[in-house]
């Protein structure tokens, strides 16, 4: 009896182990890609979302961030809403996205005359603290403050075309829906929320991604998408987010 069960046990294990190897589709993949002829790597960003990096970037001290943020007030507003639509709002910015951009400014992977010199002396901890602070600010702006957000609403036809791209994307061209990564439906690690972002800033980023002037997106999703969009679509999307519609479910603007 005992030996019988032992045999059974062994059979179970060996079948479990061997079964996948017997399948035709499971032959071992040749695993040695030759390094010959490989061009030298061009890294879009030195940030890699390993679990320790995610921990580091998302566990800042918001109080220390508040003190550090005093020097950002002049351009980005005391509540994270800038007075100039060309300058991004930082209120409610995703922590990881904020942290990554600061690292990229500091390492020169994202070019900005102003931000490179500001970000360069900051430590990784400083960026994490600032990220913690700005991510806590509400995305509803104080109406008494001087701010560019929200901008005037775009024409209905334009916001409907933007809404379609945001909810559904474009299957034929392979443009994924914006809300799958930039919220409110889904967030991808390191993707910023666009709930309260200025139109001019969004438009400039889309154009820069399309032209390659900005190239710090890891595995190039944004360069690909911005390049697939037409100029009208870029303007429609920027206007849509700039007018504050990004906070609502995008289906609200779709024609019935």
């Amino acid at each position: 009896m005992q030996s019988c069960s032992r045999v059974l046990l062994l059979t179970c294990f060996s079948v479990l182990l061997i079964a996948p190897l017997m399948l035709p589709g499971c032959s071992p993949t040749p695993s040695s890609p030759r390094a010959i002829g490989q061009p030298p790597a061009r890294a879009p960003s030195f940030v890699a979302w390993k679990s320790e990096t995610v921990l580091e970037a998302s566990h800042g001290d918001a109080l220390r961030g508040l003190l550090l943020a005093k020097r950002c007030d002049h351009c980005h507003g005391s509540e994270g809403f800038s007075a100039n639509a060309n300058i991004p709002n930082l209120a409610g910015m995703e922590r990881l996205a904020f942290w990554k951009e600061m690292e990229d400014f500091a390492s020169g992977k994202r070019n900005s005359e102003v931000m490179s010199s500001i970000a360069a002396p900051l430590t990784r901890q400083d960026s994490a603290d600032l990220a913690a602070y700005y991510s806590m600010l509400p995305t509803a702006a104080d109406p008494l403050d001087r701010q560019a957000f929200p901008q005037a609403a775009t024409p209905a036809a334009q916001s409907a075309s933007a809404g379609r791209l945001i909810v559904l994307g474009d299957v034929g061209r392979g443009i994924p829906p914006c809300q799958a990564c930039h919220g409110p439906v889904g967030f991808k690690t390191g993707a910023p929320s666009l709930a309260a972002q200025n139109a001019d800033y969004v438009l400039r980023q889309l154009r820069d991604f399309a032209s390659g002037a900005r190239a710090n997106d890891i595995n190039m999703p944004m360069r690909s998408i911005a390049g697939l969009l037409t100029e009208e679509e870029r303007q429609a999307l920027a206007g849509y987010y700039g007018s504050g519609l990004g906070r609502l479910p995008a289906s609200a603007v779709l024609p019935k």
Partner: peptide, 14 residues
């Protein structure tokens, strides 16, 4: 998967 863009055969210009 986190460092595809930094090293190996899947860097963006390869």
């Amino acid at each position: 998967p986190e460092t595809l863009h930094l090293q190996g055969e899947f860097v963006e210009n390869n």
